[in-house]
């Protein structure tokens, strides 16, 4: 189990991570989500003892990373796949890591086979493609057969085949009861991999919840409707939704050339328009998505929001 407590990192007057507290438990994939620059990588480096927190701490099963005797046997991490010495062969790279943690060299051959790198084990890693480097990084993470795994943006720049491979691997590792913590700024990716989400924005915790709950709680579907007489339709639907607004979520909002109606079904909107003799040019149900839920939550915390967004 990973336990982050009031984790804070300041660079001068910039606050990269701001009082972040969360727990990561075994047996499922926990997604660590946030826009670029939200502080995901900084948080992960602090979890692994590479960066020193300004305040707060992270404990791995009750111990700070830096005090683990053989850390690779407890925690495997892939931070940056290209962060290897290009002049070394894949085998030597893994061998020096294994030796430092008292891991038998036979395990090096095992993880090479597991990641499909046996054929290129004696090639210098400087010539590896991104996909091969990623596999090497994962081989290094799996070297100590650790119960906790951390991956920082593991699918970045990979081809569909590589993405599928990593996704399956992460799910299998979690199914074996391991703790899998994976960061990403790609919502769609997390929707397919993570069971649980920790969402941050500007270094602060925004949500810590199951993926399904996250979608249903923070975003709802709406009805998208267009009409040549948009103002009349808006007035009509306003009256209709205010009548049924029990939970306060029903609303009609204007978005450019169309209305977004929540709290009414598409059928009800169509019926109401027909009753008032208003022509409709478009009527569609828009289902809730993780993407929308995420955008909604992080919009206010996006560091460099484009002017058009």
């Amino acid at each position: 189990m990973i336990d982050a407590r009031r984790l804070t990192k300041r660079y001068g007057s910039t606050v990269a991570v701001d009082g972040l507290s969360f727990e990561v438990r075994g047996g499922h994939v926990t997604g660590f989500l946030g826009p670029n620059g939200a502080g995901k990588s900084t948080t992960m480096r602090m979890m692994l003892g590479l960066d020193h927190p300004t305040e707060g701490s992270v404990l791995i099963d009750g111990t700070p990373y830096g005090r683990l005797k053989h850390p690779l046997r407890k925690v495997g991490a892939l931070l940056d796949a290209k962060a290897v010495h290009g002049g070394r062969t894949a085998r030597d790279h893994l061998l020096c890591l294994a030796q430092s943690n008292g891991i038998p060299s036979s395990r090096v051959n095992e993880v090479l086979a597991l990641t499909g790198l046996t054929e290129v084990a004696r090639r210098r890693v400087g010539g590896f493609s991104l996909g091969m480097s990623q596999r090497l990084g994962i081989a290094a993470a799996l070297l100590g057969d650790p119960e906790i795994l951390l991956f920082d943006e593991p699918v970045n720049g990979l081809d569909p085949e590589g993405i599928l491979w990593i996704r399956t691997l992460m799910r299998n590792l979690a199914a074996e009861g391991r703790t899998v913590f994976v960061s990403s700024h790609l919502m769609s990716e997390m929707a397919q991999t993570a069971d649980h989400l920790i969402v941050i924005g500007r270094g602060r915790l925004i949500a810590d919840t199951g993926t399904r709950e996250f979608i249903s709680r923070s975003s709802q579907g709406y009805v998208r409707v267009r009409s040549p007489r948009l103002p009349d339709l808006a007035r009509l639907l306003d009256g209709a939704v205010s009548g049924r607004a029990g939970d306060g979520t029903a609303a009609v909002t204007l978005h450019g050339d169309h209305l977004r109606v929540t709290g009414m079904t598409a059928a009800a909107v169509g019926e109401a328009a027909a009753g008032a003799g208003l022509a409709l040019h478009e009527l569609a149900e828009v289902a809730p998505s993780l993407e929308a839920a995420y955008m909604e939550l992080t919009q206010s915390s996006t560091e460099y929001a484009g002017v058009t967004s």
């Binding site: 692994l48 003892g49 830096g66 683990l68 925690v75 962060a83 290897v84 010495h85 430092s100």
Partner: peptide, 14 residues
């Protein structure tokens, strides 16, 4: 230069 130092320090945090 290569970033290997981070991998090294993950293996040997001391």
């Amino acid at each position: 230069r290569t970033g290997m130092i981070r991998t090294t320090l993950l293996a040997v945090p001391g």
